[in-house]
Amino acid sequence: MNRLPWWMGGILMSGLLLLTFSIYGADRPIGASTYVPYFAGIIFDLDPEKYSYLKHIANPGAWEGVMLFGALFGGFVTSVFITKSFRISLIPTGWQKYKNNSVVSRLLWSFFSGFIMIIGARLAGGCTSGHFMSGMSQMAISSMIFGTVVLIVVIVTGRLFYNVKEK
């Protein structure tokens, strides 16, 4: 078995969310975008005392930073030993099929989308993990607003950006 079916993934993810929320676990939601400005602060050597945002995210940023190290480790081990999908690659097969064959184009778009992704997530106060999974699980209205906007925009962008019709 080299991949789990979607329903097993959903059940396991639900178990992980409940463990994380539980007071016997971490007593907080799962989040995965606050670590980015947190690491940006470390890498670009910003003084946390000088920037209000770094002060604001000091605790969640550190928590997610440690979780990120775990996710990198877990993802790497699983890709090498279980899914056997580890390989160095510059351009996804789907990009070649539905966009173009240019590595430069893929890398430039990656850079650009990574840039606005983090700004978007931080403006909204969460991402797929923090808003969609953790927020909607708490039935938070804010997360439902975010989730609806994202779902619509993802589908519209997909239609406009890729050559959907090809094959």
Binding site: S110, G114, G120, C127, T128, S142, V150, L151
Partner: peptide
């Protein structure tokens, strides 16, 4: 939420990742 959601949606479709799945992808 709305401006962030729009930026996030556009980038998710183009990058094909979100901040949670991206690192796992880098790890492979």
């Amino acid at each position: 939420l709305v401006i962030g959601g729009i930026l996030f949606g556009i980038s998710m479709a183009i990058l094909g990742k979100c901040p949670g799945t991206g690192p796992v992808s880098i790890a492979e």
